[in-house]
Design a protein around this nucleic acid. Structure first.
Length: 283
DNA sequence: CTCCAGGCGCCTT
DNA sequence: AAGGCGCATGGA
């Protein structure tokens, strides 16, 4: 099978930071290139002077599935201009300039973050890899590439037993994932519909799922829904906010939540991603 | 060995 | 309202 490639013209795009900053869990680095699966497309990405070089397994008539995912049309300068001008944030931006938010598929994003609670990122990646290998549909890959799989659909997961999910090492998260898959497969929740709703409505709807609280809902709103004000507060962000913004006195979780929701403005989710990556990689 | 991980739900004060 | 605890599993 012959590969096809294009160059996506874009500047100020830090591919490695973007694909390895804990927002997506399936990208694999090989030297300077990254391989992954988006929808049902295997793709290899590499940063070049003119932008990003993308290689696929099959000819592609329309590349929007990729440019939407990578958000190459976003004006990063305008995003960063909307940040509050405080020293910690400027420092985080300087440390990983070009970090972007992806626009992921809602179901893969929701399922991935349902599997993320009290897990290290390496373990989340392992669980998701097992789930895809065992229960996802194989996708075409170029000659010589290892097999690759689409993320299992809600229907595919809804057809499994809890034991098959537990065999993918997800532990107590298995029944929650199964419930969510069934609700979606049966039409009880439409992940495309909440994307057209208000931030608060969409958040409330996601949180009706067992195993989805505020943090996971915020991740899905931000990484798949395009609600850029969503600000997921996890253990890393708590550490970052405590150390960078409240160095003298200990701030309660309540205080940190309130600060996160009010200080960072309409692009707070982007700010969060810079602080998260900064805290996770620089210290 | 112990501690904790991109949390959540439920139980006590 | 705020804090404590168990939950599966496996790095560190």
């Amino acid at each position: 099978m012959s590969a096809v490639e294009i160059i996506i013209p874009v500047q100020d795009y830090h591919l490695a930071a973007t694909l390895d900053s804990g927002q997506a869990f399936r990208w694999q680095r090989r030297n300077t290139a990254w391989t992954g699966v988006i929808h049902r497309h295997w793709v290899r990405l590499e940063a070049v002077d003119a932008g990003l070089r993308a290689t696929t397994a099959d000819p592609v008539p329309d590349w929007r599935w990729l440019t939407d995912y990578l958000q190459t049309g976003v004006d990063l300068t305008a995003v960063i201009k909307a940040f509050p001008e405080d020293a910690p944030l400027q420092q985080a931006v300087a440390a990983c300039r070009g970090l972007r938010l992806l626009r992921q598929e809602p179901w893969e994003c929701l399922a991935s973050f349902m599997l993320s609670s009290t897990k290290q990122i390496v373990q989340i990646r392992q669980i998701i890899a097992l789930l895809c290998e065992r229960h996802g549909t194989a996708v075409p890959v170029p000659d010589g590439e290892p097999p690759a799989f689409a993320f299992p659909t809600p229907e595919q997961i809804a057809g499994l037993g809890e034991a098959q999910l537990r065999a993918c090492k997800m532990g107590f998260r298995a029944p929650n994932l199964l419930d969510a898959a069934r609700r979606i497969a049966e039409g009880g929740l439409d992940l495309e519909r909440w994307r057209t709703r208000s931030h608060a409505e969409a958040r409330a709807e996601l949180m009706q799922l067992r195993g989805v609280g505020g943090k996971i809902a915020d991740c899905v709103l931000l990484f798949a829904g395009g609600f850029n004000a969503a600000f997921p507060v996890d253990v890393w962000i708590k550490k970052a906010l405590q150390e960078l913004y409240f160095p003298r006195r200990r701030a309660s979780d309540k205080r940190l939540q309130h600060f996160a929701a009010t200080h960072f403005g309409p692009q707070g989710g982007y700010a969060q991603q810079y602080l998260f990556h900064y805290r996770r990689t620089m210290k």
